[in-house]
Amino acid sequence: MSVLQKPTDFTSDQEIRWCPGCGDFAILAQMKKLLPTLGIPPEDIVFVSGIGCSSRFPYYLETYGIHGIHGRAPALATGLARMRPDLQTWVVTGDGDGLSIGCSHLIHALRRNVNIKILLFNNQIYGLTKGQFSPTSPQGLVTGSTPKGTVHEPLNALSVALAGKATFVARSVDTNAKHLGEVLRRAALHRGSAFVEIYQNCHIYNDGAFDYAKNAKIKANHVVELNHGEPLIFGTEQDLAVGLNGPRLETIKQRGGEWADKPLIHDETNQDSSLAQMIAQMRHPEMPEAIGVFRAIKAPTHNDLMPDQSPTTKERAKRLKKQLTSGQTWTVA
């Protein structure tokens, strides 16, 4: 077993083919920073991906990797994790790969609580196929396939994950290095399916989609950071908060150092995911968008629940023979 300390030890010899300036670089950098801290040798880590810009991720890491077919990475990872629980398996997908062609696999991997870490790079566009609207594109987005703007209601990645009963659900932003690093670390340590949506800028086909959440000058007023046990407070002056008013979330404002209504206290361990759903659905510009860990609960994994047995070769031969001769048999002398 080799012990590694440096991010460069996880750098593969492959030339990176993302467009210079792509948000994917920032995510890759955080991953390279994280991996040496986990105490897992590189040979025990596998990155599985689908198709799309994000899915080139495995090539750039000196671990085992399998670049899949479009949308199927969670299925590939499910088989691998079932047979090789000794490995740490990551899935890298995008908004088209994970929420359109492969949405079903994503939901089913999550509901089974397969022990895999799924990162969904959301840039709200199909990049590799040169700019068509994706399932997360906002209505009205003008793209190659929607010259008059898309009319489809966008999917919310976290709502999908929560509907799939994911046991770990989080969101971060590509260039928010410290926050992303921490969210990835939490995901890595979670036992079961971890789902992380990462806002990622495609500066070629959908530049600035997440400016409100990335631009240092304005983001404080548009993003609220979730911390377990703490109130949902945000704003440059920390004078804004998210509160629960009847069945709705709303923005509340501090006046004279006092909160008129109580800010919501975040509980990531809540078994009931209803509040997490409401927080996930807060959308810019009406509401701040939440980043951080929405949900982190303990539950048995897929492998914990399956009736898998690993008999020794000798024992297996014995059992197989018994199975083959089960039921009615007769002997011909």
Binding site: V48, I66, G68, I69, R72, A75, L76, A77, T78, G79, L80, A81, R82, M83, R84, L87, S104, H105, I107, H108, M306, P307, D308, Q309, S310, P311, R316, R319, L320, Q323
Partner: peptide
């Protein structure tokens, strides 16, 4: 299953084969 066989009733035909490919990779 007592002979070490693992089955996976997948969400669809594609997942069934992809999971098998993942298993072979492992």
């Amino acid at each position: 299953s007592d002979c070490g066989a693992r089955t996976f009733q997948a969400e669809d035909e594609i997942a069934a084969i992809c999971a098998a490919i993942g298993a072979s990779f492992g």
